[in-house]
Amino acid sequence: MKYLTFSVTAVLAAIFSNAASADGETIAVFTKNLTNPYFQAVRVGTETGAKTLGVKVIQYVPTKPDSIPEQLSQVEDVIVKKPDAIVFVPVDYKALVPAVEKINAAGIPVTNIIDRSAGGKFVAFVGADDYSIGLATARTLLKAIGSKGNVIIIEGVKGSLTNTDRVRGFNDALKETPNVKLLASQPANYQRLQALQVVENLMQSFPSIDGVLAANDPMAVGAIEALEGANRKALVVGINGSREAVELIKSGKLLASGDFNGFIQGCIGMQIAVRNLRKQPTPPEVILKAIVIDKSNLTAYETPVEQRTCPTLEQIVAN
C-alpha cells in the first residue's frame, strides 16, 4: 500500500512538473474543446502572439468537448489563481455570461474572441464575421455552378452562434440566385461522420445535387466522401480554412473554404490583452475581413499554422 501511495504521488508530481511558474505576465486562454483543429489553431495563435510579446500562456479547455458547466468551473478555478489577463472563447455565448461577470467582479481584464458574449464587460472583441463569410463562401459556390441547379446545406450545431450566422449567410446568398433550388438543410453538428451519413441519405431523396454548402470543413469533407462513395459529382464548400481544406482545394476536391482564421483571431486577441495590460491603446473591436480561400489565393495558406507569423494589430486594423 505504501508503495502504491508513493507511486501515485510520483506520477502526479511528474505530471505537474511542467506546471506554471510565474514570471512576467500570465495570460489564461479559454477555448471550447481539444478535438476541433480550429481551436488548436486558435491556441497556436495565442501562443505565437505571446512568444513575441514575452508573456506566459496557460490554456484551459473543457475535458468534455463544449461543456458549459465545466468551462464555468474552470473560470471559477482560474479566478483563484488570478492571472493578469484572460482571453476568452465562451462555449456558449449566452450561458457563459455569469462566468464573464465573475471575471469582471474579480477585476481581471478579459478579451473576448471568436464568439461574441451576450453580456459582461470586455477589453475588446476580436472576431470574424460569420455572416459575411457564409455569404461570400456561398456566393463562390453559386457562381461556380452557374447560378442554377440544386443545392443542400449541411448545418453545424443548432443554436451555436457561428452556425446561426453562417447558415443565415448561406440562405441570403441563395436569395440572390432565384434559379438555385435549396433541396434540404440538415444539421450534422459540425461532425464529419454525421455529415457523411446525412449526405448519403439525402442523395437517396435527391437524384440531382449540384452543390453542397457545409457550415464547416469537417462536414464538407464528410460530404465529399459521401459523394465520391456514390460516384456522384457536386461542388462542395466549407468554412474554417483548415489545413485539410487547403490540401483538398489544392487537389481540386473542395471548391473553396471560408477563411474563419482561428490563428489570427487568437494572436490578435493575445496582442490586445497584453497591450491593455501594458497601458497601450487598444481598439474596442476587431472584425476580420471575410476572405474565401480557393485555388486563386491558396499559396498563403499552405504554411502550417505552427510556422506562421503573427500579423500585427496595425496590419489587421489597416485592412
Partner: peptide, 15 residues
C-alpha cells in the same frame, strides 16, 4: 471502416 469511409481521423471520431 470509419477511417476508410471518411478518409480522415480526428480526436472526436468515437464520440
Amino acid at each position: 471502416i470509419i477511417l476508410a469511409r471518411i478518409n480522415s481521423a480526428q480526436g472526436d471520431i468515437g464520440e
